[in-house]
Structure formats: C-alpha cells, structure tokens
Amino acid sequence: MNEDYIISDNSKQLIDDVVKKFPNNQSRSAIIESLLILQHENNGFITKKIMKALAIYLTVHEIDIYEVATFYTMINVHPVGKNTIAVCNNVSCMLRGSDEILSHIEKKLNIKVGQSTKDNCFYLKDEIECLAACNGGPMMQVNHKNYENLTIDKVDKILESIK
C-alpha cells in the first residue's frame, strides 16, 4: 500500500511537452496541465501519492502541487464516478429551466450534486458555475462535452446512451 505512484511513460511524454511551453526553470508552470493529464490517467482524480510523484518529476515542492490541486475545481482530490456530469445553473441557464434539469438528473440517478452513483457510473459534479454557453442554455457537460438547449427528454437520452 505504501508504494510510490509511478507516472506512465505516456503521461511523462505529455508532461514533457507541457514543460516545453515555458522558459527554463519554470516547470512549476506545468502543474495545472500535468494534473489534468494525470487525473485522466487515474480514473478522474488525484491522490497525494500522485502529487508527490509529480512534485519529484517537475522538481517542485509537494505543497505547490497541493495548493493547485485544491484551488482549481476541475481537479478532483477524491474518487469520483466514471462519467462526470456538470449542469450549469447560473443565471442565463436558470432563466431557461436549468433547475428542473438538475433536479431531474438528481432524481433519475438517485444522487445529490457532489455525489457519485452507487455503481460508480456517474459523478454529478458540484461547484459548477457558468460554463460559457449562455445562449445554449439550459446546458450541461458530460465528460467535458457540451450538450445544449436541454429538455428532460434529451437528458434521458444522453444519459441512457452513456450507461
């Protein structure tokens, strides 16, 4: 259980490409994109062991990684369901019925915002604010892909196609 996390060769290569975007000795700049890469590799969430491995790989302090991982809402620091659903419910979407969409999904999946389904298939993400698709509201992202002008019917079809 105490084994260190090993970053895959594929992810190492991707992280190397990120580091190249920045001046020499600024590998700290690569933390955000690297965390997104490693999160993708690790079923959608980051562990402390991953943070440690990345800190060693980028030669930065572990605390630098921890700060970033806990500040940005797209980095999950707890296990989450396989497919992430993010329903925008800021003003523009709210005016067009996003609250009904969100409560329909909660009921359908039998979870609340911030929870994952028992079968671990879906994670209904919390801290979702405006997703910059205001003229397509109500809208949601499933695994970062936009679905706009939602209706209850449309939502059912999208979720069933993923199950």
Binding site: S92, E129, C130, A132, A133, C134, N135, G136
Partner: peptide, 11 residues
C-alpha cells in the same frame, strides 16, 4: 478564460 455569467462570445 471566459467565465463571466452571461458571456459566451470567446468560445
């Protein structure tokens, strides 16, 4: 980093 609620031009 477009994220001001109501704004969706840069996307």
């Amino acid at each position: 980093d477009e994220s001001e609620p109501g704004t969706c031009k840069d996307r």
